[in-house]
């Protein structure tokens, strides 16, 4: 595509302050999302994927702060936007859904009112008009009996229904970009499958771009066109989804895929001992020097311990951040 990207993130850096010390929880993270495209960020807890998403819409709070890099949304730099300008963007053109919908919904307000509020706030509709639109929004997220449901409070809904309401709120104003942070982690697998389909269908129909965040590699590869794998505050590999699973380039991605007991693997190949990744995920304050994965890497060399690898762009698109990539 030659059109301008919807979102460009360049050399993003997020600092974590512990006492007087500052640690780069996210460093040199760059990615772009085209209109209507779905990008996945996958990584383990503490790799910086969630705070990357929060930083895009100015929701970082101390001890975290955005300390470097640029975020361009639709050609406009938004990383230093004043709070009221950012508020106009948030919910209207960039929306977000979270892992636990119970904490993201206001327990004292009906779901109908919470959806309607978006239309009043961002689209200047009257409350009567907005409430009618709220019912339509619930229809679009396939909530049964929406006329009745609008009068319900969040605690009256099941986890899956609450996440549907969250999606209805997020998509109410037809945003250009949806940030989805582990949207199905708290849900059962059958409900997860429904919610994922819902996000996929709605966003495809409306041309909404999605930044999907998860620790589940299989889910991300299934949902997204491109996948960025994060480790210790960096994107270590970014590729087209179908390639990254078939032929991972970074030893971390490679190790992760080999370590997963994938459904169907035993039936096809018999029970193989899972390949382990040695060591533990380092905490932010103890990110190693050089390549941050080197203490756990089977291919680590002297160079890896000393020199921080840069992004190597691959001919078929995407990049990998490794001295010895396959």
């Amino acid at each position: 595509m030659t059109t301008k990207p919807l979102l460009e993130v360049e050399h993003l850096r997020i600092d974590l302050a512990i006492g007087d010390a500052r640690f780069a929880a996210v460093q040199d993270v760059s990615f772009t999302i085209m209109r209507g495209e779905t990008l996945g960020l996958v990584g383990e807890s503490g790799c910086g994927k969630s705070i990357t998403a929060l930083s895009l819409i100015g929701l970082l709070r101390p001890p975290l702060n955005l300390s470097g890099g640029a975020v361009r949304f639709d050609g406009q730099e938004i990383q230093n936007l004043p709070a009221d300008e950012m508020r106009k963007l948030r919910g209207n053109r960039i929306a977000m859904i979270f892992q636990e919908p119970m904490t993201a919904l206001n327990p004292l307000s009906t779901v109908g009112r919470q959806i309607a509020e978006m239309f009043v706030l961002h689209k200047g509709k009257s409350w009567a008009e907005a409430e009618r639109l709220a019912i339509e929004a619930l229809v679009s997220v396939r909530v049964p009996a929406p006329e009745r449901r609008v009068k319900d409070y969040p605690h009256q809904l099941s986890g899956g229904m609450r996440q549907r309401v969250m999606i209805a709120i997020a998509l109410a104003c037809d945003p250009d970009l949806l940030l989805a942070d582990e949207p199905t982690t708290a849900l059962d697998v059958t409900v997860q499958a429904e919610i994922l389909d819902l996000i996929k269908d709605l966003c495809a129909a409306r041309g909404t771009a999605v930044l999907m965040i998860s620790h589940d590699l299989g889910l991300i590869a299934n949902m997204c066109q491109r996948v960025g794998v994060m480790y210790a505050g960096r994107i270590v590999e970014e590729r087209a989804a179908e390639e990254i699973f078939q032929a991972p380039r970074h030893p971390y991605t490679n190790g992760l895929i080999a370590s997963l007991p994938l459904l169907g693997a035993r039936a096809r190949h018999g029970r193989q001992r899972l390949k382990e990744i040695a060591g533990v995920v380092p905490p932010v304050a103890a990110f190693p020097q050089g390549c941050r994965f080197h203490p756990r890497c089977y291919a680590a060399s002297e160079t890896c311990r000393a020199v921080d690898p840069v992004e190597t762009h691959l001919p078929q698109g995407g990049f990998v951040r490794c001295h010895h990539h396959v």
Binding site: H215, L260, P261, L274, K275, I277, V280, V281
Partner: peptide
Amino acid sequence: LDVSIRAQIIN
């Protein structure tokens, strides 16, 4: 557990 740790415990 973290995804990269699971294989250790399963094994």
